[in-house]
Amino acid sequence: MQAQPETTAVMDKAPAPPAASPDQAARAGAPELREHALAWHNIVTIAKRELSGYFASPVAYVFIVIFLLLCGFFTFMVGRFFERGEASLAAFFLWHPWLYLFLVPAVGMRLWSEERRLGTMELLLTFPVSTWQAIVGKFLASWFFLTLALALTFPLVVTVAYLGDPDGGVIFCGYLGSFLMAGAYLAITCMTSAMTRNQVVSFIISVVLCLFLILAGWPPVLDLLVRWANPTLVDTVAAFSVVTHFDSFQLGVIDTRDVVYFLSIIVFCLFTTGVIIRSHRAG
Protein backbone atom coordinates (compact mmCIF):
# COMPACT_ATOMS: atom_id res chain seq x y z
CA MET A 1 0.00 0.00 0.00
CA GLN A 2 2.92 2.42 0.04
CA ALA A 3 4.26 4.65 -2.70
CA GLN A 4 7.87 4.23 -3.62
CA PRO A 5 9.85 7.39 -3.05
CA GLU A 6 12.89 6.17 -5.07
CA THR A 7 10.87 5.95 -8.23
CA THR A 8 9.35 9.35 -7.66
CA ALA A 9 12.77 10.88 -7.35
CA VAL A 10 13.81 9.45 -10.68
CA MET A 11 10.67 10.61 -12.39
CA ASP A 12 11.31 14.18 -11.31
CA LYS A 13 14.22 14.55 -13.63
CA ALA A 14 12.39 14.09 -16.88
CA PRO A 15 13.04 14.09 -19.86
CA ALA A 16 15.42 11.30 -18.94
CA PRO A 17 13.33 8.19 -19.49
CA PRO A 18 12.40 6.18 -16.42
CA ALA A 19 15.32 4.43 -14.81
CA ALA A 20 14.32 0.98 -15.91
CA SER A 21 14.04 1.74 -19.61
CA PRO A 22 14.94 -1.07 -22.01
CA ASP A 23 18.46 -2.37 -21.78
CA GLN A 24 19.51 -1.47 -25.26
CA ALA A 25 18.40 2.09 -24.60
CA ALA A 26 20.57 2.31 -21.52
CA ARG A 27 23.58 0.98 -23.36
CA ALA A 28 23.28 3.20 -26.41
CA GLY A 29 25.32 6.31 -25.84
CA ALA A 30 24.08 8.88 -28.33
CA PRO A 31 20.67 10.39 -27.59
CA GLU A 32 19.51 9.68 -31.15
CA LEU A 33 20.38 6.04 -30.82
CA ARG A 34 18.54 5.92 -27.54
CA GLU A 35 15.50 7.51 -29.14
CA HIS A 36 15.62 4.87 -31.88
CA ALA A 37 15.95 2.08 -29.37
CA LEU A 38 13.00 3.47 -27.41
CA ALA A 39 10.89 3.82 -30.55
CA TRP A 40 11.66 0.24 -31.47
CA HIS A 41 10.90 -0.90 -27.94
CA ASN A 42 7.51 0.82 -28.12
CA ILE A 43 6.69 -0.70 -31.51
CA VAL A 44 7.62 -4.18 -30.33
CA THR A 45 5.62 -3.81 -27.11
CA ILE A 46 2.53 -2.70 -29.02
CA ALA A 47 2.96 -5.44 -31.61
CA LYS A 48 3.35 -8.09 -28.90
CA ARG A 49 0.15 -6.95 -27.24
CA GLU A 50 -1.71 -6.99 -30.53
CA LEU A 51 -0.51 -10.49 -31.35
CA SER A 52 -1.41 -11.79 -27.92
CA GLY A 53 -4.86 -10.31 -28.56
CA TYR A 54 -5.21 -12.49 -31.67
CA PHE A 55 -4.27 -15.65 -29.89
CA ALA A 56 -6.23 -14.92 -26.72
CA SER A 57 -9.43 -15.39 -28.67
CA PRO A 58 -10.41 -18.15 -31.09
CA VAL A 59 -10.18 -15.66 -33.96
CA ALA A 60 -6.60 -16.57 -34.78
CA TYR A 61 -7.19 -20.31 -34.88
CA VAL A 62 -10.42 -20.01 -36.84
CA PHE A 63 -8.70 -17.76 -39.32
CA ILE A 64 -5.72 -20.03 -39.81
CA VAL A 65 -7.87 -23.11 -40.26
CA ILE A 66 -10.16 -21.42 -42.76
CA PHE A 67 -7.24 -19.95 -44.65
CA LEU A 68 -5.55 -23.33 -44.96
CA LEU A 69 -8.79 -25.10 -45.92
CA LEU A 70 -9.55 -22.55 -48.61
CA CYS A 71 -5.98 -22.69 -49.88
CA GLY A 72 -6.28 -26.45 -50.18
CA PHE A 73 -9.69 -26.29 -51.81
CA PHE A 74 -8.68 -23.77 -54.44
CA THR A 75 -5.36 -25.42 -55.16
CA PHE A 76 -6.57 -28.99 -55.49
CA MET A 77 -10.19 -28.77 -56.53
CA VAL A 78 -10.50 -25.51 -58.44
CA GLY A 79 -6.90 -25.19 -59.54
CA ARG A 80 -6.66 -28.88 -60.53
CA PHE A 81 -3.23 -29.21 -58.95
CA PHE A 82 -2.72 -32.85 -59.91
CA GLU A 83 -4.18 -32.71 -63.42
CA ARG A 84 -1.73 -29.96 -64.33
CA GLY A 85 1.09 -32.42 -64.16
CA GLU A 86 3.68 -29.78 -63.35
CA ALA A 87 5.84 -29.45 -60.28
CA SER A 88 4.93 -25.86 -59.43
CA LEU A 89 2.73 -23.94 -57.03
CA ALA A 90 1.11 -21.86 -59.78
CA ALA A 91 -2.30 -23.34 -58.97
CA PHE A 92 -1.76 -22.32 -55.35
CA PHE A 93 -0.63 -18.72 -55.79
CA LEU A 94 -3.16 -18.00 -58.52
CA TRP A 95 -5.95 -17.69 -55.98
CA HIS A 96 -4.18 -15.59 -53.39
CA PRO A 97 -5.45 -12.18 -54.55
CA TRP A 98 -9.01 -13.51 -54.17
CA LEU A 99 -8.46 -15.36 -50.91
CA TYR A 100 -6.89 -12.30 -49.35
CA LEU A 101 -9.74 -10.15 -50.58
CA PHE A 102 -11.90 -11.43 -47.73
CA LEU A 103 -9.47 -12.88 -45.26
CA VAL A 104 -7.11 -9.94 -44.85
CA PRO A 105 -9.86 -7.38 -44.12
CA ALA A 106 -11.25 -9.90 -41.63
CA VAL A 107 -7.92 -9.90 -39.80
CA GLY A 108 -7.32 -6.18 -39.99
CA MET A 109 -10.79 -4.73 -39.50
CA ARG A 110 -10.49 -4.62 -35.73
CA LEU A 111 -7.08 -2.92 -35.66
CA TRP A 112 -8.25 0.61 -34.95
CA SER A 113 -12.02 0.37 -34.89
CA GLU A 114 -11.80 -1.83 -31.81
CA GLU A 115 -9.50 0.67 -30.12
CA ARG A 116 -11.98 3.40 -30.83
CA ARG A 117 -14.97 1.38 -29.72
CA LEU A 118 -13.39 0.35 -26.43
CA GLY A 119 -11.86 3.77 -25.86
CA THR A 120 -8.44 2.19 -25.42
CA MET A 121 -7.14 4.47 -28.14
CA GLU A 122 -7.16 7.22 -25.55
CA LEU A 123 -5.05 5.04 -23.31
CA LEU A 124 -2.66 3.94 -26.04
CA LEU A 125 -2.02 7.42 -27.38
CA THR A 126 -1.49 8.95 -23.95
CA PHE A 127 1.30 6.49 -23.24
CA PRO A 128 4.65 8.03 -24.11
CA VAL A 129 4.54 6.82 -27.71
CA SER A 130 4.05 8.65 -30.97
CA THR A 131 1.10 7.91 -33.22
CA TRP A 132 3.24 6.41 -35.94
CA GLN A 133 4.84 4.00 -33.48
CA ALA A 134 1.39 2.77 -32.53
CA ILE A 135 0.32 2.46 -36.17
CA VAL A 136 3.46 0.60 -37.22
CA GLY A 137 3.35 -1.66 -34.17
CA LYS A 138 -0.23 -2.72 -34.78
CA PHE A 139 0.34 -3.14 -38.51
CA LEU A 140 3.44 -5.28 -38.04
CA ALA A 141 1.63 -7.53 -35.58
CA SER A 142 -1.15 -8.27 -38.06
CA TRP A 143 1.28 -8.68 -40.90
CA PHE A 144 3.28 -11.12 -38.84
CA PHE A 145 0.11 -13.04 -38.13
CA LEU A 146 -0.76 -13.25 -41.84
CA THR A 147 2.79 -14.34 -42.58
CA LEU A 148 2.45 -17.08 -40.02
CA ALA A 149 -0.73 -18.32 -41.71
CA LEU A 150 1.03 -18.19 -45.07
CA ALA A 151 4.02 -20.08 -43.68
CA LEU A 152 1.72 -22.85 -42.52
CA THR A 153 1.06 -23.73 -46.15
CA PHE A 154 4.54 -25.29 -46.22
CA PRO A 155 3.16 -28.84 -46.66
CA LEU A 156 2.31 -27.85 -50.22
CA VAL A 157 5.94 -27.02 -50.86
CA VAL A 158 6.94 -30.34 -49.38
CA THR A 159 4.37 -32.11 -51.59
CA VAL A 160 5.62 -30.58 -54.82
CA ALA A 161 9.20 -31.22 -53.82
CA TYR A 162 8.33 -34.87 -53.15
CA LEU A 163 6.36 -35.34 -56.36
CA GLY A 164 8.73 -33.60 -58.71
CA ASP A 165 11.56 -31.19 -59.02
CA PRO A 166 10.12 -27.69 -58.66
CA ASP A 167 12.03 -24.46 -59.17
CA GLY A 168 12.77 -23.26 -55.63
CA GLY A 169 13.36 -19.70 -56.80
CA VAL A 170 9.92 -19.42 -58.35
CA ILE A 171 8.29 -20.75 -55.20
CA PHE A 172 10.22 -18.29 -53.06
CA CYS A 173 9.20 -15.42 -55.34
CA GLY A 174 5.59 -16.54 -55.14
CA TYR A 175 5.71 -16.48 -51.36
CA LEU A 176 7.46 -13.11 -51.32
CA GLY A 177 4.82 -11.65 -53.66
CA SER A 178 2.03 -13.14 -51.59
CA PHE A 179 3.58 -11.73 -48.44
CA LEU A 180 3.84 -8.23 -49.92
CA MET A 181 0.32 -8.42 -51.31
CA ALA A 182 -1.05 -9.39 -47.89
CA GLY A 183 0.79 -6.38 -46.47
CA ALA A 184 -0.76 -4.06 -49.04
CA TYR A 185 -4.30 -5.34 -48.37
CA LEU A 186 -3.66 -5.12 -44.67
CA ALA A 187 -2.49 -1.51 -44.89
CA ILE A 188 -5.70 -0.65 -46.75
CA THR A 189 -7.74 -2.36 -44.04
CA CYS A 190 -5.75 -0.56 -41.37
CA MET A 191 -6.71 2.72 -43.01
CA THR A 192 -10.43 1.90 -43.30
CA SER A 193 -10.45 0.59 -39.75
CA ALA A 194 -9.20 3.94 -38.49
CA MET A 195 -12.14 5.62 -40.21
CA THR A 196 -14.88 4.02 -38.17
CA ARG A 197 -15.60 2.42 -34.85
CA ASN A 198 -17.71 -0.18 -36.61
CA GLN A 199 -15.76 -3.25 -37.69
CA VAL A 200 -18.32 -4.32 -40.27
CA VAL A 201 -18.19 -0.97 -42.03
CA SER A 202 -14.43 -1.11 -41.99
CA PHE A 203 -14.53 -4.65 -43.42
CA ILE A 204 -16.86 -3.73 -46.27
CA ILE A 205 -14.97 -0.60 -47.29
CA SER A 206 -11.66 -2.40 -47.34
CA VAL A 207 -13.10 -5.29 -49.37
CA VAL A 208 -14.37 -2.81 -51.93
CA LEU A 209 -11.02 -1.01 -52.10
CA CYS A 210 -9.11 -4.26 -52.44
CA LEU A 211 -11.58 -5.50 -55.04
CA PHE A 212 -10.89 -2.39 -57.04
CA LEU A 213 -7.16 -3.07 -56.85
CA ILE A 214 -7.75 -6.59 -58.17
CA LEU A 215 -10.23 -5.73 -60.89
CA ALA A 216 -8.13 -2.89 -62.26
CA GLY A 217 -5.93 -5.46 -63.93
CA TRP A 218 -8.57 -8.05 -64.73
CA PRO A 219 -8.98 -8.64 -68.48
CA PRO A 220 -12.79 -8.07 -68.58
CA VAL A 221 -12.34 -4.67 -66.97
CA LEU A 222 -9.41 -3.77 -69.17
CA ASP A 223 -11.33 -4.95 -72.28
CA LEU A 224 -14.07 -2.57 -71.29
CA LEU A 225 -11.55 0.27 -71.22
CA VAL A 226 -9.67 -0.74 -74.34
CA ARG A 227 -12.71 -0.01 -76.53
CA TRP A 228 -12.76 3.70 -75.83
CA ALA A 229 -9.83 4.79 -73.65
CA ASN A 230 -6.40 5.54 -75.04
CA PRO A 231 -3.65 2.99 -74.32
CA THR A 232 -1.89 5.19 -71.77
CA LEU A 233 -4.97 5.26 -69.59
CA VAL A 234 -5.43 1.52 -69.92
CA ASP A 235 -1.83 0.99 -68.88
CA THR A 236 -2.20 3.37 -65.96
CA VAL A 237 -5.26 1.58 -64.66
CA ALA A 238 -3.61 -1.78 -65.16
CA ALA A 239 -0.56 -0.52 -63.31
CA PHE A 240 -2.73 -0.03 -60.24
CA SER A 241 -3.71 -3.65 -60.20
CA VAL A 242 -2.40 -6.04 -57.61
CA VAL A 243 -2.81 -8.90 -60.03
CA THR A 244 -0.47 -7.40 -62.62
CA HIS A 245 2.24 -6.93 -60.03
CA PHE A 246 1.65 -10.25 -58.35
CA ASP A 247 1.81 -12.07 -61.70
CA SER A 248 5.46 -11.30 -62.22
CA PHE A 249 6.26 -12.69 -58.77
CA GLN A 250 4.43 -15.88 -59.76
CA LEU A 251 6.67 -16.15 -62.78
CA GLY A 252 9.69 -16.01 -60.54
CA VAL A 253 10.69 -12.43 -61.26
CA ILE A 254 11.45 -9.97 -58.49
CA ASP A 255 11.02 -6.67 -60.22
CA THR A 256 11.92 -3.58 -58.20
CA ARG A 257 8.85 -1.83 -59.61
CA ASP A 258 6.55 -4.50 -58.17
CA VAL A 259 8.21 -4.39 -54.79
CA VAL A 260 8.03 -0.60 -54.81
CA TYR A 261 4.36 -0.81 -55.82
CA PHE A 262 3.41 -2.92 -52.82
CA LEU A 263 5.61 -1.01 -50.40
CA SER A 264 4.24 2.33 -51.58
CA ILE A 265 0.66 1.13 -51.03
CA ILE A 266 1.67 0.15 -47.51
CA VAL A 267 3.44 3.41 -46.75
CA PHE A 268 0.70 5.53 -48.29
CA CYS A 269 -2.11 3.76 -46.40
CA LEU A 270 -0.29 3.82 -43.08
CA PHE A 271 0.44 7.50 -43.56
CA THR A 272 -3.24 8.12 -44.31
CA THR A 273 -4.12 6.14 -41.19
CA GLY A 274 -2.01 8.59 -39.21
CA VAL A 275 -3.76 11.54 -40.82
CA ILE A 276 -7.19 10.06 -40.08
CA ILE A 277 -6.33 9.38 -36.45
CA ARG A 278 -4.92 12.86 -36.02
CA SER A 279 -7.98 14.47 -37.55
CA HIS A 280 -10.27 12.48 -35.23
CA ARG A 281 -8.35 13.71 -32.25
CA ALA A 282 -8.36 17.28 -33.48
CA GLY A 283 -12.16 17.06 -33.48
Binding site: L38, I46, P128
Partner: peptide, 27 residues
Amino acid sequence: PENAPAYTDMTVWGFLNFAAEMRGLSG
Protein backbone atom coordinates in the same frame (compact mmCIF):
# COMPACT_ATOMS: atom_id res chain seq x y z
CA PRO B 1 -9.61 8.22 -19.02
CA GLU B 2 -13.35 8.54 -18.59
CA ASN B 3 -15.14 5.16 -18.44
CA ALA B 4 -11.83 3.44 -17.64
CA PRO B 5 -11.10 1.71 -20.95
CA ALA B 6 -9.00 -1.46 -20.94
CA TYR B 7 -8.16 -4.13 -23.50
CA THR B 8 -10.92 -6.66 -22.96
CA ASP B 9 -9.03 -9.57 -24.48
CA MET B 10 -6.22 -9.39 -21.92
CA THR B 11 -5.98 -10.60 -18.36
CA VAL B 12 -5.49 -8.02 -15.62
CA TRP B 13 -1.94 -9.28 -15.24
CA GLY B 14 -1.24 -9.03 -18.96
CA PHE B 15 -2.77 -5.59 -19.18
CA LEU B 16 -0.74 -4.20 -16.29
CA ASN B 17 2.44 -5.72 -17.68
CA PHE B 18 1.72 -4.11 -21.01
CA ALA B 19 1.18 -0.75 -19.34
CA ALA B 20 4.43 -1.15 -17.40
CA GLU B 21 6.35 -1.96 -20.56
CA MET B 22 4.84 1.02 -22.35
CA ARG B 23 6.13 3.11 -19.47
CA GLY B 24 9.61 1.78 -20.09
CA LEU B 25 9.76 -0.58 -17.13
CA SER B 26 11.32 -3.98 -17.57
CA GLY B 27 12.62 -6.95 -15.61
